[in-house]
Design a protein around this nucleic acid. Structure first.
Lengths: 201, 201
DNA sequence: TAATTTAAGTGACCACAGTATTTGACTTTG
DNA sequence: CAAAGTCAAATACTGTGGTCACTTAAATTA
């Protein structure tokens, strides 16, 4: 943590205001109907200042999306010990989908998922970062499942974990491209239990 | 088929030229490095004319992408009769991934998949159109598998087909967001066989 | 064949994300 | 404390996808 000078504090304050105002406007009007100018103006700051703190308009949503890691940690503590690895994964995914749907919202997820695809991201997007908490959580469940003889050992822990998280991304992608009748919680459960079945002995 | 007047013929010729020139330039320089103006200019036509024939820049790639339906038809004819439904699906997917990778290319697929997510598509994108040949092909394989007692009947034919095509979209999404070392053919096989395992009795 | 309708094509224009350059207040250094 | 350096912020600008009002030539109708 660098020493906090007056200037740095003020900059941090600006960033925070931009972030909160951006989220609020996106929520109210939808991502595509909000301009960077509008966010800046509402913060009494220039557009240039926005780009001091964020690389793209998407970054507002990306930043918020990372909150999900906190969700993971708090969720993991409340999970029962006496259920199978599969059940843990299903519980975890179900809670996560409810969180995405009700807390973050489809508009945010759409934009995070779109942004992750864009070529102009030089480094890997957070979504594909193997150090994400998500991968650690799933990995530990899978490991447990293999140790308990619940899952077969055809695939490595890492390979199985990738497939399980791919289930999630695939379902979320479908949630975005299919119409309103798509029930992301139910579809996630259906898809993931089938994959887990395929991994079982 | 409407009667072909001189004018309609000329318009069709313009559209064809725009399409071919667009594809050529996208292939040569990458989608993001080609402007609509550039395509139009190379066809000796104004940018406005481009938008008479296409709704968005993406449409060039979308149109080409639809060629994949022809691929499906020709592929289906050469498939052996005496293998299981699962094997047919795996063969089909493998051939399709090779086609995507080597014929259409990742840049095209990225843009089709991105475009499908955008909110401004009023109707469903082609990718999510249930009348696509893809869904018919997979549906027939699944039906066969259920009739042969290869797959369990927990899920309806439609539900199982959706899951199987979701495997494909999920893998392609990962192909796009993960780095260069991602082997789309191998990953597709791994993911799909696990799902098929989960569907088997 | 003359009048009317249709639609392909034009080109100036707009909106808006992102960039390059400059400014000046704050911080660091000697 | 003064000079030098830094960096948040401002401003003007660019590039590009897409739009709109209009033109013009071909097609249709009378």
């Amino acid at each position: 943590m660098p020493r906090m000078t007056t200037r740095k504090l003020k900059a941090l304050e600006t960033k925070k205001t931009l972030l909160e105002t951006g989220l609020e406007l996106f929520h109210k009007k939808g991502f595509d109907n909000v301009t960077v100018d509008e966010i800046a103006k509402k913060c009494n700051v220039s557009k240039g200042a926005f780009y001091v703190h964020f690389n793209t308009k998407y970054d507002i949503f990306n930043e918020k999306f990372k909150d999900i890691d906190n969700f993971y940690s708090t969720f993991q503590q409340g999970i029962p010990k006496n259920i199978s690895a599969s059940e843990k994964i299903l519980m975890f995914y179900k809670a996560q989908m409810i969180y995405l749907r009700d807390e973050l919202g489809k508009d945010l997820i759409r934009n995070v998922y779109m942004n992750a695809m864009s070529l102009t991201i030089n480094k890997n997007h957070y979504l594909a970062d193997p150090d994400r908490n998500l991968y650690k959580v799933i990995n530990s469940f899978v490991q447990e499942g293999i140790e308990n003889n619940e899952f077969k050992e055809e695939l490595t822990t890492e390979e199985a974990s990738v497939l399980i998280t791919r289930c999630m991304r695939g379902t979320i992608y479908d949630w975005i491209i299919f119409g309103e009748e798509f029930d992301v919680v139910q579809e996630m459960t259906k898809f993931t239990s089938t994959i887990l079945n395929g991994l079982k002995k």
